[in-house]
Design a protein around this nucleic acid. Structure first.
Length: 1020
RNA sequence: GCCUUGGUGGCGGAAUUGGUAGACGCGCUGGAUUCAAAAUCCAGUGAUAGCAAUAUCGUGUGGGUUCGAUUCCCACCCAAGGUACCA
């Protein structure tokens, strides 16, 4: 007998303490049970703390983990923090507070919030990417990559020593490797005669992480590189400073070596199709040809417009997916940033080209891609030579060609490509038609399937496939092209000019990077005075005075000691945000190991992640780079699987509901023509508020308020503006009000807590809140219209949940009021895990009262035989919940719990043999109440490993079925028949029924469809 | 622009392979209980017409396939996310 009320505060605190003390969820690396590794993407611990959107995925992973435990698995369910990042650094710049302190505080707060929610995390395995004991291994992997190259023959990464030994024996002519495009060919003897530095330079072109000049968005005023995101209209989002494209020497990761394997690997993992699509597009494989065009110098010789040509020592290399259309080329377009632009532009065109290049530099890449309407470009004055016809082709520049894609140049085939077509039309360039029987007077023809080539010499009459093959063969013959597979994927820039990231374990000898030995790792972040770039534009680590490497002592020493003999400067860049997250899932398997990144036993036991849940916004960042590192680790033999997560689910975003109502500032409420009471014009009208009321005689009464401090007037959303007085002397003109966001924590069911809200801000304190019945001022209500509402109503709108929109709901407040079990259930109940959905706290009362009903159901527990009805309710639920969990349809199982409890309550069920399995069913979702009920059922052990109830179909067998009888597809009434009755008999019974005759009204049915167990449909 | 996802009552959503549209919950309305409130319980609740039985309409829009379409096909509209240094 339970007489107490459901006291979730006590129960939740009790079981959270129990789990922590008993280490209920501590996973062992040895077990006879099958393993299950459930992982949630670890969070960046931001200063704002968790909002209700964050735990959504964690709750889902937790439910699945707990379910798997009930199913007899040894479950690994860890959590940690991706604790390097920009916000802490920006906060440090503003306040001087060390990012490590900010981060520590934020993590503390996150941990408190997470603990409240009752997750089954194994906290003994927590990792933090900013912890030196963790980033030691991030540095270690970087070093492994540095010491490796990609052998295309064996199709895997190998130690750089194997490459060196080939160079020593035979040079590099036959080496099939992923390397820089400008790698020279050398013989063995040349290699052996290279200086040590020259050898280092060559090897850098092969290493999987290497130094290269890459183009970045540089903001000189901020002294930093900006993301496309942070640039608006060519200037920095912060401060509006100019941004230029600039080349910088930075570390890059040769992810392109893995392009094909990253693509192929997608077939073997159970990840959402949209996510695979986005990785596929990101990698962007396309087959075609690389074609070289010689650049000509062309001059008008005389008035007869004869052209005199002369070869220039330049070539333009293009990549095209349509080599079959090579005879349709009528011009070439270079990206304005292309290296050749400055070299080939003729003096006459110089001014125009330079102006265009400058204008383009101000446009973002995204802007250029998105804008297909405006055509712009400039003629360089130079010509290229067609490889077959030898005709001169004008070379243009245009911003629709991007420097970062392919070679930054295209051979323009206006008849076959719409962008080329638009460009040609706009600048009046030739549009030769090379397609048989196709009209290109209005638009380009891009359909490969029906293409037949014409006007193309040796390609005439061929299809796309045949012509492509032939064109490539001919290009190869004349040495001006070859078949090529191109990837849009670019090598990933790995340097950041930031403080709060992993330092590179690198120092420089004679400009060449040297790795610090593993035994001296971690190389810890140095202390700096300030977190900004240095005055000379170096990254923040340039501010460190103690940042030089003493090779003899093997330690960090003062910069003053740099002698380039034994003491050398250390790298000033740090690693990007995705460095630390690219192997964390493996580190969890053995997180305290200081000898290796993880022991062989640990990785052999856990192998890979069985279920990974996180946001889809990581699709091409974290989720692609981590696959790349995993494949590298696999090549090196450190991990047994070359894909680390078998199944991945993207949880949808929980959006916020912002609450709006109209606001007029007092200045806006100013009404012209008003004179103050004293008659003096000097007094500012903005100190007076007017409200107008119609009296019984239909006349308008005015109310005035005089006050010095009133800043705003807020209007309840159901306040009706007096239209006829919109422009009158005393009314607040409707068109002068603007929507105002009210903090959702002061709004309940669209009704504002005026008193609470008033106190949140000095300027709201003396504001006026106008409602249909009158107005509120300083906590007092002045009634103008009796019988009308005194409540201030807001109207909702769905937006992203964010602090700046005042629509953030914190889980703490919800746990305090309704409990963690209610929050967990409600987050799941909101809708499908993978879809985004709006948060609305009001609805939580539904799941909260469900838990109270569940509690009451356990008031009396008896050893009584269950009835057939009880068993049916229970087993229906077991079946549904098990299917739901396995399909990650958590919202529908919450519904079925409600139905089950409603039914069992109505049946007055008290049988222990029903209630016991019910507690287990509920436990993954609402673990605290389940543990408490389990204890009251007489158990002394935690419910966590109780075996999941077994579904038995025999309890659900029905003897009759209620058939919906529809006419022309519309259900009219229902008839009950035995389940074993055959179609013929059902048809006869239905047709004989009086209701059927009534529906037919004498018509003879044309057709009767009987689907046994489902439906009857009568046509006629 | 391109890629992806989504669009069903006042709201969140449900509907296993094409088979009773709106389960479950919120909100709302009425009632019970209460000095009152909270809490709890009962009933109703897609729209329109009707006292009612019932009828018609109804899953973003327009068309198609089918005995039958939220579900399949074609075209379109709208919203959200991503688009290489936010994490």
């Amino acid at each position: 007998m339970i007489s107490m009320n459901y006291n979730f505060r006590e129960i939740e605190a009790k079981w959270q303490k129990y789990w922590a003390e008993h280490e209920t969820f501590k996973a062992s690396n040895h077990s006879d049970k099958p393993k299950f590794y459930a992982l949630s993407m670890f969070p960046y611990p931001s200063g704002a703390g968790l909002h209700v959107g964050h735990p959504l995925g964690y709750i889902a992973t937790d439910i699945y983990s707990r379910y798997k435990r009930h199913k007899g698995f040894n479950v690994l369910h860890p959590m940690g923090y991706d604790s390097f990042g920009l916000p802490a650094e920006q906060y440090a710049i503003q306040t001087g507070q060390h990012p490590a302190i900010t981060t520590e505080n934020n993590i503390k707060r996150y941990r408190e919030q997470l603990d409240q929610l009752g997750f089954s995390f194994d906290w003994s395995r927590e990792v933090r990417t900013s912890n030196p004991q963790y980033y030691k291994w991030t540095q270690w992997i970087f070093i492994q990559l540095f010491h490796s190259w990609y052998n295309k023959t064996s199709d895997k990464a190998e130690n750089i020593e194997t490459l060196v030994s080939v160079f020593e024996k035979e040079g590099n002519a036959n080496v099939q490797a992923a390397c820089d495009d400008d790698t020279p060919i050398f013989s063995a003897s040349e290699w052996n005669h290279f200086s040590a530095k020259e050898k280092q330079e060559i090897l850098l072109k092969y290493r999987l992480t290497y130094l290269a000049d890459t183009e970045v968005n540089w903001c000189p005023a901020l002294g930093t590189v900006l993301a496309n995101d942070e640039i608006v209209n060519g200037v920095s989002e912060r401060g509006g400073h100019p941004v230029i494209r600039k080349k910088m020497t930075q570390w890059s990761m040769r992810i392109t070596a893995y392009a094909q394997r990253l693509l192929d690997g997608l077939d073997n993992i159970d990840w959402p199709q949209p996510l695979k699509d986005s990785q596929t597009n990101w990698i962007g494989r396309s087959e075609g040809a690389s074609v070289k065009f010689k650049v000509l110098n062309v001059e008008l010789e005389d008035e007869n417009s004869k052209l005199k040509t002369q070869n220039l020592p330049f070539e333009i290399e293009v990549f095209t997916t349509r080599p079959d259309t090579i005879f349709g080329v009528s011009f070439m377009t270079l990206a304005p940033e292309h290296d050749l632009v400055a070299k080939i532009t003729t003096p006459e065109q110089k001014a125009e080209v330079e102006a265009y290049v400058e204008a383009t530099a101000k446009r973002s890449e995204r802007d250029r891609m998105a804008d297909v309407k405006t055509v712009s470009g400039a003629f360089t004055g130079a010509y290229a030579e067609h490889p077959f016809t030898k005709e001169p082709i004008p070379i243009w520049i245009g911003d629709y060609v991007l420097a970062s894609y392919g070679t930054g140049a295209v051979m323009a085939v206006p008849c076959g490509d719409q962008r080329d077509y638009d460009f040609a039309k706009h600048y009046n360039l030739d549009i030769p038609n090379i397609f048989e029987g196709v009209d290109i007077s209005e638009e380009a023809f891009a359909d490969k399937a029906t293409t037949i080539i014409a006007n193309s010499d040796f390609l005439n009459g061929l299809s796309y496939k045949e012509a492509t093959k032939k064109a490539i063969a001919e290009l190869e013959k004349i040495g001006q092209g070859k078949g090529k597979v191109n990837y849009r994927l670019r090598d990933a820039v790995f340097s950041r000019q930031r403080y709060w990231g992993e330092p590179f374990p690198v120092y420089y000898v004679d400009g060449m990077p040297q790795m610090i030995d593993l035994e001296h790792l971690p190389l810890e972040l140095p202390e700096v005075e300030k977190y900004l770039p240095t005055e000379t534009g170096e990254p923040p680590l340039g501010n460190a005075t103690h940042w030089a490497w003493d090779r003899l002592k093997a330690e960090v020493v003062s910069n003053d000691l740099i002698d380039h003999v034994n003491v050398f400067p250390l790298e000033l860049n740090t690693m990007p945000g995705w460095a630390g997250s690219s192997q964390y899932f493996n580190r969890y398997m053995d997180p305290r190991n200081n000898e290796t990144i993880f022991s062989k036993e640990a990785i052999d036991y856990w192998q890979d992640v069985d279920l990974y849940i996180g946001g889809s916004e990581h699709a091409t960042g974290h989720l692609l780079y981590s696959r790349f590192w995993q494949k590298f680790m696999f090549d090196m033999g450190y991990v047994p699987k070359d894909e680390y997560a078998q199944k991945l689910i993207n949880q949808g975003m929980i959006t916020g509901t912002s609450e709006f109502a109209n606001q007029a500032s007092v200045n806006q409420a100013y009404v012209s023509g008003y004179k103050t009471e004293s008659g003096s014009e000097g007094k500012r009208a903005s100190n007076i508020i007017f409200l107008v009321k119609e009296n019984e005689n239909g006349e308008l009464d005015k109310f005035q308020y005089y006050g010095e401090d009133v800043k705003y007037v807020f209007f309840s959303s159901d306040y009706e503006y007096l239209d006829e007085y919109k422009e009158g002397e005393y009314a607040v003109p409707y068109n002068q009000v603007i929507p105002h966001r009210f903090d959702v924590n002061y709004v309940d069911n669209n009704i504002l807590d005026i008193e609470g809200y008033r106190k949140t801000n000095e300027s709201y304190k003396d504001s006026i809140f106008v409602v249909p019945g009158g107005f509120w001022l300083e906590g007092k209500f002045t009634e103008l219209f009796s019988g009308k509402s005194k409540e201030f109503k807001t109207y909702p709108e769905v937006e992203k949940m964010s602090k700046s929109k005042y629509n953030v709901v914190n889980p703490d407040a919800i746990c305090e009021e309704y409990g963690a079990d209610s929050l967990r259930l409600y987050e799941m109940f909101l809708g499908p895990l993978e879809q985004s959905k709006p948060w609305n706290t009001a609805g939580i009362t539904g799941v909260s009262s469900f838990l109270k009903k569940l509690w009451r159901l356990f008031e009396t527990i008896e050893d009584k035989e269950p009835t057939a009805e009880h068993l049916k309710s229970l087993h229906k639920t077991i079946k549904k919940v098990q299917e739901d969990i396995e399909h990650f349809s958590f919202n529908t199982s919450v519904s079925s719990f409600m139905i089950c409890v409603n039914e069992l309550t109505a049946q007055k069920c008290t049988s222990k043999s029903i209630l016991e399995p019910l507690a287990i069913l509920v436990s993954p979702y609402a673990p605290h109440i389940a543990e408490e009920l389990w204890e009251r059922l007489g158990h002394t052990e935690s419910i966590a490993e109780a075996p999941f109830p077994k579904f038995e179909g025999k309890y659900l067998v029905e003897s009759t079925k209620e058939y919906p009888i529809s006419f022309n597809g519309k259900m009219r009434f229902k008839l009950e028949f035995p389940t074993d009755m055959d179609s013929k008999a059902i048809e006869a019974a239905v047709l004989a029924h009086e209701k059927t005759q009534e529906q037919l009204q004498g018509r003879a049915p044309k057709k009767v469809i009987v689907v046994p167990g489902k439906i009857v449909n009568i046509v006629g």
